[in-house]
């Protein structure tokens, strides 16, 4: 069954007709060609597909595109403004908060959700809040450091 979608992705209005069974991550990657949102485990565990739906981190592999109808979606491509990295992206770069980089888009978006709720998050909070994002390089040390630095930058 085909359904109409009308949503906002990275501040741009998007209208499309998709099969109702289309996952949000497939819509983002295949229909919109925004391939920064990754598919890791495809079972809702690893968090590589994390995007923000109305500001909340969500695993785009475990939500139908039609469930996000009417929502505002932010993917990794929507964070930089006018060529300037988002403070959280800049912090990941500064701290080398990545190794292979596959988990990074999801990590960055989860980090932004985290900082919205815990602007002063300590290391224990950051680690606990990252439960839904796996780094198979196990590079957590610098990821946690980057999020603390990014949080400070977001506080301004």
């Amino acid at each position: 069954m085909s359904v109409s979608l009308s949503l906002t992705v990275n501040d741009e209005a998007v209208n499309a007709q998709v099969d109702a069974r289309t996952l949000l991550v497939d819509f983002i990657r295949n229909n919109l060609a925004l391939t920064g949102t990754h598919v890791g485990c495809d079972t809702g565990q690893c968090g590589a597909c994390t995007v923000l739906v109305d500001g909340n981190a969500v695993k785009a592999c475990t939500i139908l595109a039609v469930q996000a109808n009417g929502s505002k979606i932010t993917t990794i491509e929507g964070l930089a403004k006018n060529g300037e990295l988002h403070p959280m992206q800049a912090a990941f770069k500064d701290c080398h908060g990545l190794q292979c980089g596959f988990c990074t888009p999801g990590m960055v978006l989860s980090a932004i959700d985290l900082v919205q709720r815990h602007p002063d998050a300590d290391e224990a909070t950051i680690r606990a809040e990252l439960e839904g994002n796996l780094c198979r390089c196990t590079g957590y040390q610098n990821i946690v450091k980057a999020i603390a630095q990014g949080a400070a930058a977001m506080r301004g």
């Binding site: 809702g44 968090g47 994390t50 739906v53 909340n56 981190a57 969500v58 695993k59 475990t62 939500i63 989860s110 959700d113 985290l114 809040e129 439960e131 839904g132 994002n133």
Partner: peptide
């Protein structure tokens, strides 16, 4: 329950 992303949905 689960993780942050799961709790959001």
């Amino acid at each position: 329950i689960g993780d942050r992303q799961v709790r959001n949905r």
